[in-house]
Amino acid sequence: MTAESVLKSPKNLKRRKIMNSVMISLCIAAGFITIVPLIYIFFYTTQSGISSLNLDFFTQLPKPVGEEGGGMANAIVGSLILITIGGIIGIPVGVLSGIYISEYSKNVLSTIVKFITDILSGVPSIIIGIFAYGVIVIPMQRFSALAGGFALGILMIPTVAKITEEMLRLVPQSLREASLALGVSRWKTTLRVVLTTASSGIVTGILLAIARAAGETAPLLFTSFGNVYWQTNIDEPMAALPLQIFTYAISPFDDWHRQAWAGAFVLIFLVFIVNLLVRFVTRNKFSGNL
């Protein structure tokens, strides 16, 4: 495509100018169409959530059907446990493979790993749920927090690996060279110089992966399953915030809807804070899409 072919009919300047204004206006309109529904969802959830949020939400167990009140304390604790299990699995795999992709990038293998990591990030989360069901639920003969956490861990891997790789690439080459020139071995350079320099970025990346995992519902449906009671044994079914929101959202009770909005607000708030933190730490350093 050359500029010449674009301009091959320069006669009708007026028509071209009208075309220009129309298309530019359409693009501006598209910008607004993109942002408006997203902002609306954000504010609607915030508004409905804040008005339903109270201390009971964080401290009480769900009440049986028909009784007003109660909270999601068990679901919040459940989500924390699930995310912890997920983090134990997802963070080391993500960070170390990110190091491999970035620091040994001359290798053909690292290109393959990078590609597969991108593919894994596109695998629907419900598929990961089926996988966790087959690997953990079936052998254990019951739904468990372990299976749910395992699924969340797999979902965290691509995000953590991608951000680790991007952050390590931002570390100036001269720093690596300076360290190597001082006689420090390559692996110590990677750990003590490169990783340390990029650590704040990697930590926020991990937080981003955690925030995403915290909102995942589909992979928990038939792994962690949910629970209306207190449950802290990881080999038993466990409640989780998004699962509880789902159950309450599709129920016919107004009081449950209110609590679901409160839960949705907690999730959105988490996403918002973590993203703000990521932006703050990586400001100007990094502009890719995560």
Binding site: L38, I41, T45, A214, A249
Partner: peptide, 13 residues
Amino acid sequence: EILAAIPSIIYGF
């Protein structure tokens, strides 16, 4: 970017 990270359960709700 933030809005893209909103969990899908909230979109459904």
